[in-house]
């Protein structure tokens, strides 16, 4: 277990300087995500044009992994369609949980920096919270989602 695999430079950077951080006003959809285990709380906002996500932002508090993951998410999904986001989430989920995940690194881009998380099972929920929250926003879910 190497700490540097978890806290890669990209992760540390996105934690220190989260991208697309703040409230999106007005936002077409938003959802709250909560990880009761560590107290992480995120809100993900998105604007949509047809099937395309035209803008996405997030705010909240969390550990380095959850903040960096959310920041990376906003960069990765902007401009993508709902179905592309779903595919990307599947890839990220595989990356976070499977050692033999056959995910094309080119498709993941910077998100590949999250691969170290799978060595730290207790932290998988931190990295996936923002994705579940975005999903809920896209489904216009009224209820807050949780990782439990």
């Amino acid at each position: 277990m190497d700490l540097k695999d978890l806290y890669r430079d990209v992760i540390v950077d996105h934690n220190r300087h989260p991208r697309n951080f703040g409230k999106l006003e007005p936002a077409d959809v938003h959802a709250d995500g909560h990880n009761p285990l560590c107290g992480d709380r995120l809100t993900v906002y998105a604007n949509l044009k047809g099937e395309h996500i035209t803008d996405v932002k997030f705010e909240g508090t969390g550990c380095a992994i959850s903040v960096a993951s959310a920041s990376l998410l906003t960069e990765a999904v902007k401009g993508k369609t709902r179905s592309e986001v779903k595919e990307l989430f599947d890839d990220v989920h595989a990356l976070l949980t499977q050692h033999d995940a056959s995910v094309d690194p080119a498709r993941l881009g910077k998100l590949a920096a999250l691969s170290g998380v799978r060595e730290f099972p207790a932290r998988v929920k931190c990295a996936s919270l923002c994705w579940h929250t975005l999903n809920a926003a896209l489904e216009r879910a009224a209820e807050p989602v949780t990782t439990e």
Partner: peptide, 21 residues
């Protein structure tokens, strides 16, 4: 630094503490 990150990094140093609520 979020307590959860402290807990993970301390664990890699062999130090077991609790983080959370």
């Amino acid at each position: 630094i979020h307590p959860h990150d402290i807990g993970t990094i301390l664990d890699t140093e062999g130090v077991a503490i609790r983080t959370g609520h």
